[in-house]
C-alpha cells in the first residue's frame, strides 16, 4: 500500500514553484521561440553553432544564479545530497549521455513535451519515471533494505 509522507509533502510551494517553471517555459517559447529543455540547452553548448551560443549561456547562467538571488531575500532551503561521489559520477555520466540520446529530460520531455501533448515526450516521460521508480526501489529496498 502506498504510504503518504504528509510531513514532507509541500503542496502549496510545489504547485507555486511549478507555476514559476511553467512561466519560465512560456517566456522562452513566446519571446525566443525556444523549448526550455535544460539538457538540450546545455548539450547544445557542446556542439557550438555560430550565433546559437549566447542565449544558451544566458539561460544556464540565470539558472545557476537563481540561488544567489533567492539568498538575498530569504534563506535558501536545504539541499541534501545523500549519494556518495562514485554514485554521483556514475549517475552524472548516465544522465548526460541518456538525455542527449533520448533528446530530453524532465524539463524538455516532462514539462514542455507533455504541455505540447507530444506522444514522443509522453513515452520518454513514462520511461524515465518508471526507471526512476525502479532504481530507487532497488537501491533503497532491495540493496539497502
Amino acid at each position: 500500500m502506498l504510504q503518504l509522507d504528509l510531513a514532507a509533502f509541500t503542496p502549496a510551494s510545489s504547485l507555486a514553484g511549478g507555476i514559476f517553471i511553467g512561466l519560465a517555459a512560456a517566456m522562452l517559447i513566446l519571446l525566443n521561440g525556444r523549448i526550455a529543455g535544460i539538457s538540450g540547452i546545455v548539450g547544445g553548448l557542446l556542439r557550438p553553432v555560430h550565433g546559437d551560443i549566447s542565449w544558451r549561456l544566458a539561460f544556464t547562467a540565470g539558472l545557476m544564479l537563481a540561488p544567489l538571488l533567492w539568498a538575498t531575500v530569504s534563506a535558501l532551503p536545504a539541499i541534501r545530497i545523500d549519494a556518495g561521489f562514485p554514485v554521483l559520477i556514475v549517475a552524472g555520466l548516465l544522465v548526460g549521455i541518456s538525455v542527449r540520446y533520448g533528446a530530453g529530460c524532465t524539463s524538455g520531455h516532462g514539462v514542455c513535451g507533455l504541455s505540447r501533448l507530444s506522444p514522443r515526450s509522453l513515452v520518454a516521460t513514462l520511461a524515465f519515471m518508471c526507471s526512476g521508480f525502479a532504481t530507487v526501489f532497488v537501491v533503497r529496498h532491495l540493496i539497502g533494505g
Binding site: I38, S39, V42, T60, L63, M64, L65, A66, P67, L68, L76, I79, I81, D82, A83, V87, L88, V90, A91, G92, L93, L94, V95, I97, S98, V99, R100, Y101, G102, A103, G104, C105, T106, S107, H109, R120, V123, A124, T125, L126, A127, F128, M129, C130, S131, G132, F133, A134, T135, V136, V139
Partner: peptide, 30 residues
C-alpha cells in the same frame, strides 16, 4: 533511442536524485 534514453536517464536520476536543471541550481548554490 527515445525509450532507451529515457530509461537510462531515469536510472541516473534515481541514483542521485538529480536531473540536469536542479543539478545546475545546486551547483549555483555552491
Amino acid at each position: 533511442r527515445l525509450v532507451l534514453g529515457g530509461l537510462g536517464f531515469g536510472i541516473g536520476w534515481g541514483l542521485a536524485g538529480f536531473c540536469p536543471g536542479p543539478a545546475l541550481v545546486a551547483l549555483g548554490a555552491g
